[in-house]
Structure formats: structure tokens, C-alpha cells
Design a protein around this nucleic acid. Structure first.
Lengths: 362, 362
DNA sequence: CCACCCTGTGGAAACGTTTCCACTTTAGCC
DNA sequence: GGCTAAAGTGGAAACGTTTCCACAGGGTGG
């Protein structure tokens, strides 16, 4: 019925020449007379010949495939980056095998194992903690070229593309300071599991230290429903003069705005909120989210380019962190700090805050 | 330096047996004495032996890889689905090669070609229009098992997993009707390119026809900045009695809310807005978005399961559309229709609409 | 006690490529 | 016109695996 897929042998037979010649013609990898050239090309065309990549890969030990390992696609940041990787890879004839590790070290290792089994030529990845990462260890041991994204490893022997989280957070800190926010908090999910959160807190705190202000409160929350509200209530009890929140990512920032609203506080009138990442929806919501816009897509494509270029030269991507430009995007969620008196009530809006806290709207 | 990757031959040598025995032991694919079993296992362990998938695939003509073709990862809907596919595939030892086609038929075909070149065993995909799709044609011609997601093909010979868009849209229509929205509009991006948008409009319009009301206005917009605002201004001029918008997806719904705000209309007081998809942020924004929550993740994993199961039995996934349950989520963006007088002004808020239209807030 | 059948075994072919190498042929040059 | 060099060519090995097959040995049933 359906003729079995034609092989190079079939083409050779039809073109009346040896398989070596076919290979040379089709790959432009060696001399061939014009005559055989046209015969082979014609034969291949007629038969609808396509190379079998297995045979190719077996011989060359190259899969023309790069592995991608990210925590999740649920965060648009990673989704965008993956798309960037995919596009850049496609341009150079590489495919992308995708794995997600869900911020879990065990899963990370398993995912990497399957990538290795598929003999990916290289890997673009984000790990939960680049120092002491088993995954990076394995990649090194197996001599697999790789490039980190989002992570900013302190170990300079490794190749990475990202944004300067510390510097970006400094800018957020500076802006908040300029807007009069003398007491701020930093909100993060799973702070311990993310080097990025740590860097952001670091840069943020630096600015407050520089101005001899209180260190920003570190608010670590989890995804349990209501947890954020409780944490915020606690925050305002302990630090009633807090006027701004810096969330470690945009999704969390949006969640903060919602939680604040349910506590009867409005953004930015009572509290300013700044996010990080610059995801698309940040611009669609009201108030527009103030955030650091990061080039996630470019991060992915840059890393892929770096990696592919290195693979083609049969080497590793250049060591060192490439920092891509970011931009502070001043959305409506950030405004001048409301004047507060000592017990944290906004002077301009003398309504009883503790009362509104007790009576969340619905 | 680094010892070349051990092959099955090395294991055989070390275990003092033939390669056939090693293969049988390691794959549990044939008889082997206990003695050789332990020797082989030990040898493999000591050498850190890993199968070379190229050799395997070459022999078996199976790649244990499934291809994924979606329009984009920027829409969280697809990102979630891809993650579902990936997870389900991983469970069964399959990997995922990802390609994005950006709603473009040319790109779709190219992407599929690279998937085929990589000899994927099957494909999970979303195409722009499942009828007359070249991509599906190619898949059929090449006898590649495949399963659609999101699409709801009318051709019942094909396997697909999705939600019943028509029915879901009927429910939206019914809800809007019950809330007193007698004049509504349907907003879509690239209506012509999406069978899903068409289905949604169909179900929506059906309800309005059933109640002998005006057909919902069809508002086709594009992504050009400001286009949505213009379209809405036009809409309210021509159909001032419109009290509700049904957007073909959540991102668009959020954009609508923003555009409406910039036109001086508030949601839901002046206009109600309903989205479609149920993306995560829909619940974080204010007003919470009323939407149809669809199980994107499950859609992906279900499709992958179907496909993998079929592949293991060396057949195609069962023909027919599997409709997954969805849920109408009534967010704050939907409320009782404001009473309007004939020229479209909300009776309860007699501010001059045309004036506020001219003076968008910022 | 012999024929038989299982179990365990390893050699070898096959999968589709690429590429080395050795063999034509042709052209170029004195 | 002979020599060499280059260009064109195909055979065959190699990549690492699976699996068919043939064969050895030892138990069983007649």
C-alpha cells in the first residue's frame, strides 16, 4: 500500500549511482559531477526522500536537539523564554525538547536524565539554586554544553543570560525611596528556593541601608489560599508604617493587590505595589502594575543562540553572565507615599484602619 | 581522559558474555540465567552504562518522542496545555518536542516538517482551522497518529480533546440574558483564523436568537494599540444599548476592561464583560473576571495519554471529539444590566457618556 | 537410552547514515 | 603522447542497538 519510506539507497538506485554520491549531493559535502547532481536531486524529489535522522544521529552522535529545563510554564516569564529558545533554535535547525521541574530538585534531576538519554546536544535551563546544583554538576560531568537563564550564578565559570536582579531591585528601591516610601516590605514565595528572589531582596535592601532606613521587611508566603492575607495583616500589625510592597514577581504582585483590597486597603492610595518581570497582563490590569520589565523572550533566544553557536563550533558557550537590559515601568500601582502618623494610619484618610482590617470586604 | 561512553559491547565484554545477552537482560526482553543476569547488571552499573537512544531508535524506528504544535506559549492557555502534555508524556517515558506556529499556516507547515524530520511517534496539536488544514493532511498522508486539542473538528474521523465551545458560549449567553443583558457584543481577535472563536460566537448568538433578541454584534479587532478602543467607540455609537461584552478569550477580556475604562465606562457598572478560558490571572484582577474556566492542563494531559496509549498499541488514537467539563465562573466583571434609555445612557448614572468618551482618563 | 524440547547463549544481520579509501576517469602539462 | 594531479565515484566500514537464528547442554517422557 503505502510504499515504505525511501532511504538513501532507494535514491541511489533510482539515480543510478552509489549511496555515497547521494549523500554527498544531498549534503553538499563533497565533489559530484553536474550530471549526477541533477540525477540525484531528481530522484530524491520523485521519491519524496527525507533523511532519517536516526541514522544520521547515530553516525554523527549529534541530535540537533537542545534540551530545555524550566521550573514551570505557568509563569508567563518562562513560557516567553521557552518560546524565545524555540524560535532561535529553529532558525539554526535545532529542535527543542521541553521538561519542567516544578521548582523541585528531585524532579530537576529526573528531567535532566531524560534529556541526557535523548542525547540532547546542549541544554538551556533555569535551576532553583545554581550554587550547589546537582543538575549543573551532572551537566559538567557529562560535558554537556549548557546555558543558564534567569539564574545569575556567582560561579563565573558558567554561561548564563539574565538580568542583573540586584541592580534592578536597587532601582525599585530607589524609586520607592524617591516616592517617599520610607518603610517597605519585600514579598516572596519560597524565598529559600530562588536565587533570584534573594538577589532582588539584596539590591532592594541595599538602597534602604544606604539611606539609613529600616531594612525592608521580608515577607515569605506560600500559595495556600488566604496565606497572603494573613501575612499582610501580620505585617501591618508589626510595621504599621509600611507604605509599599515589592513583590518578587508580577503574579505575586497582582495577588498582593487583590489581598490588600480584601483588607480594605487600596492601591496605590494606601499602599504602593511594585512587581518584577513585566508580564503582558501587568499592563492590562487596573491599576497598571509598576514593575521591572525584563526581556524574557530575548533571554531565551539569546541563550539559545549562544548555545547553538557554541555547538556548531563544537565547544561550550562562553563562560560568564550576560546581563540583558531591563526597564523600570512605572505603573499606576505606584504613587507618592501617603503621609502616615505613627500608628500607621494614612493622615489624609483618617478612617480607622484597624477596623477595616477586621472587616474585609467581599 | 574521560572514558568514551560505554556501549553495550563494553558491558558484554566486562560481563564476559555476548551483547545479545546484555540486551536481553537490560531490557528484560528474553531469557537469561540468574548468573549472567547479575554479572551484566553489575557490569552495567560499574561502567555507568546508558543506552544510546540513537541506536535504539534506528533499530526500532521509534523515537519515544511526541511532537507538540501550538500557536504560541504567550497565551497561558497553551502554556498550561503544553505542560499537561509534557507531564503525561513523561510518565510514560515519552519526551516532547515543542514547536510554535504563531497562528500562521506557513509556519505551521514548516514546524510540522521539522517534527516529522525528527521522527516523532505522534503529534498533539492545535491548528488555526481544522477543516482544510494542510497540516492535518500531511499527518494523515504520513500516517502519523495525532490528537487535536482546543480545536473541535467537524470531521469526526479525527481524534480531539477539547471543550464544547458552542455549549460553553450558550451558557455565557444564557447567563448574560438572565442578568438582563439584552444587547451584547462578541469581541474576537482574528475571528477568521480561529474555529474556536467561530464556535463561541455561534453558541452565543444561538441564545440571543432563541430569545428573539438582536444578534450579538461581532467585533473583530486586532492587536494594534488603540484598535480596541476605536472599535468600542464605534460599537457604542452604532449600538448604544449594548450592556455586555463577551470576549473570545481572557486576555482580550482584560484588554476590553482596560479599554472600556479609558473610554470612561466602568465594569461592571456600565458594561459587563465575560471572558473565556479561565486563566490564572483572571482571578487576581479587579474586577475578577467572569469567564468559562476550561481545563487546559487536563486537555493537554488527556490528549497525551490518548496518544501514548495508542502508540504503545501501535495504532491511532480513537477517532472522535472528547469534550472535557468546563465551568462558568461568575466574576465581578459581570452584573445585572444597567437600565439604559434609548440613547444608551445608563439610567442610574446619568452622566454624559459622549463627553466621557471624548475625554478618556489616563 | 534415545529423541525431544526447553533454556540459555552468542554470532551476525539489519536499521540508515556518513565518510574513509581506493579506484576510475578526465584534464592539464611538458 | 605519455605523465601526473585532480575530480568523480562506489564499496565498505562504522555508529549502537535489537532480534533472528543456530547451537549447546540438560532435563524429561516414552
Amino acid at each position: 500500500m503505502l510504499p515504505n519510506k525511501p532511504t538513501i539507497k532507494d535514491v541511489a538506485e533510482r539515480a543510478g549511482c552509489g549511496i555515497a554520491t547521494v549523500s554527498r549531493v544531498l549534503n553538499n559535502s563533497g565533489p559530484a559531477s553536474v550530471a549526477s547532481r541533477v540525477r540525484v536531486l531528481a530522484a530524491a524529489e520523485e521519491l519524496g526522500f527525507k533523511f532519517n535522522e536516526f541514522g544520521r544521529s547515530l553516525k554523527s552522535q549529534r541530535s540537533k536537539t537542545i534540551g530545555v529545563l524550566v521550573p514551570t510554564l505557568s509563569n508567563p516569564v518562562f513560557a516567553d523564554a521557552v518560546q524565545g529558545i524555540q524560535q532561535a533554535a529553529a532558525v539554526h535547525g535545532y529542535d527543542v525538547i521541553l521538561t519542567c521541574a516544578d521548582y523541585d530538585q528531585m524532579t530537576e534531576q529526573k528531567a535532566l536524565a531524560t534529556l541526557l538519554a535523548k542525547q540532547v546536544d546542549g541544554v538551556v535551563l533555569t535551576v532553583s539554586s545554581p550554587e550547589n546544583s546537582k543538575v549543573l554538576q551532572v551537566l559538567n560531568d557529562n560535558n554537556i554544553p549548557h546555558c543558564l537563564i534567569f539564574n545569575q550564578p556567582t560561579d563565573s565559570g558558567i554561561s548564563a543570560v539574565g538580568v542583573d536582579n540586584v541592580e534592578a531591585a536597587r532601582i525599585v528601591g530607589q524609586k520607592l525611596f524617591e516616592f517617599g516610601h520610607l518603610n517597605a516590605a519585600f514579598v516572596a514565595v519560597q524565598f529559600a528556593k530562588s536565587d533570584r528572589s534573594a538577589d532582588r531582596y539584596k539590591g532592594f535592601a541595599e538602597i534602604y541601608a544606604k539611606h539609613n532606613l529600616n531594612q525592608p521587611t521580608l515577607l515569605e508566603v506560600d500559595y495556600a489560599p488566604g496565606d497572603l492575607e494573613l501575612a499582610l495583616i501580620d505585617l501591618f500589625e508589626k510595621s504599621p508604617s509600611t507604605t509599599a510592597l515589592f513583590a518578587s514577581n508580577d503574579m505575586l504582585a497582582l495577588a498582593c493587590i487583590r489581598a490588600l483590597r480584601s483588607l480594605g486597603k487600596s492601591v496605590p492610595e494606601d499602599i504602593s505595589v511594585v512587581g518584577f518581570d513585566g508580564i503582558a497582563v501587568a499592563d492590562l490590569v487596573h491599576p497598571k502594575l509598576a514593575t521591572i520589565a525584563t526581556p524574557c523572550h530575548d533571554m531565551g533566544s539569546k541563550a539559545a543562540q549562544l548555545l547553538v553557536k557554541a555547538l556548531q563550533k563544537n565547544e561550550k558557550p562562553p563562560a560568564g553572565v550576560i546581563s540583558l537590559p531591563f526597564e523600570f515601568r512605572c505603573g499606576e500601582s505606584l504613587s507618592i507615599a501617603a503621609k502616615k502618623n505613627s500608628d500607621g494610619q494614612a493622615a489624609t484618610r483618617p478612617s480607622d484602619l484597624s477596623a477595616t482590617q477586621m472587616q474585609p470586604n467581599k
